[in-house]
């Protein structure tokens, strides 16, 4: 068995982000993340996409794909009935889904999308696995170039405004360290107030007021409360709303999200 797996691994260089071997050339794929869905469309692989998770609403074509439910609890019968060759799972998804897919012998790939590099690398991998290696490689090259251009003039700046990116208001969740948003803030010349707390920590409103950031960026999908905005304005120097679809999804549109964040930090610096 060990020899067989070793031979398989040597013969097939494709592995996902947790080291599981991926069989190339899948023709029927299901994406359980809106960001992955966007990358698949960007690589012109949408003809292979037979199912998507809820909130996969971009581009327009994604809305026409069969929905298999939320990624946290997809409808397993629906996935099984679509008979996919490959299911793409975000790494942060519950282990229960992976265990269920294993039990049903449905192949899946676990994908990490935590840093900016991960986005380009995922596009490259998907291109290789699904027969569009060139498109994947082109995406990664373009991704790196555009980000490089964006961050070129901001990294050496001396003054670094403190920034909070609020992902959700109730409960209050912010972008912490080791996330692509933390990376963007740093590379745009800001300083993420919650960089020492990794991931997306849940914090108290009081703690937020103690931190007194120079700039608060709101990327809350579910709430644009003017009262809350006023309250934050009383202790923060500047508040700006961001398009949550652009900044919360580690997909192709994150480039525009990064531009929004950089522009907010630059405007703050210029206004000082």
């Amino acid at each position: 068995m060990v020899i067989f797996l070793l031979t398989l691994a040597l013969a097939n260089p494709f592995t996902d982000d947790i080291g599981d071997v991926i069989a190339p050339g899948a023709r029927k794929i299901i994406s359980l993340s809106p960001a992955l869905t966007e990358i698949i469309f960007k690589l012109d692989l949408d003809s292979k996409l037979i199912g998507v998770s809820d909130f996969s609403d971009y581009p327009v074509g994604a809305k026409q794909k069969t929905s298999v439910g939320p990624y946290t609890k997809p409808h397993l019968e629906k996935i099984a009935s679509l008979n996919p060759d490959l299911v793409l799972l975000p790494i942060e998804g519950p282990d229960e889904i992976k265990d269920q897919l294993k039990r049903l012998n449905i192949p899946f790939a676990t994908i990490k999308m935590e840093t900016l590099d991960d986005v380009g690398r995922t596009a490259l991998n998907l291109g290789k696995w699904l027969g569009k290696a060139e498109a994947g490689s082109r995406f990664q090259k373009n991704w790196n170039e555009e980000l490089g251009k964006l961050f070129q003039n901001t990294t050496n700046s001396m003054s670094k405004p403190s920034v909070i990116i609020e992902i959700q208001n109730s409960p209050l969740i912010v972008a912490g360290g080791k996330t692509f948003l933390d990376e963007i803030v740093n590379k745009c010349g800001g300083n993420n107030v919650f960089e020492k707390q990794t991931g997306y920590p849940k914090i108290s409103q009081e703690f937020l007021t103690i931190k007194k950031a120079d700039l608060v960026l709101l990327a809350d999908h579910f709430e644009t409360d003017s009262e809350k905005r006023k309250a934050i304005s009383s202790w923060s120097m500047k508040v700006k709303e961001l398009d949550p679809d652009l900044v919360a999804r580690p997909g192709p549109r994150l480039l525009n999200g990064a531009r929004e964040i950089c522009s907010a930090i630059r405007d703050f610096k210029n206004a000082k």
Partner: peptide, 23 residues
């Protein structure tokens, strides 16, 4: 708990079938 674990915990507290525990 982390958000994904909260989700799993809540479903367990509500009583559910169709999990890997069924077998």
């Amino acid at each position: 708990l982390s958000p994904t674990k909260i989700q799993t915990a809540l479903f367990w507290l509500m009583g559910e079938f169709g999990t890997t525990r069924d077998p």
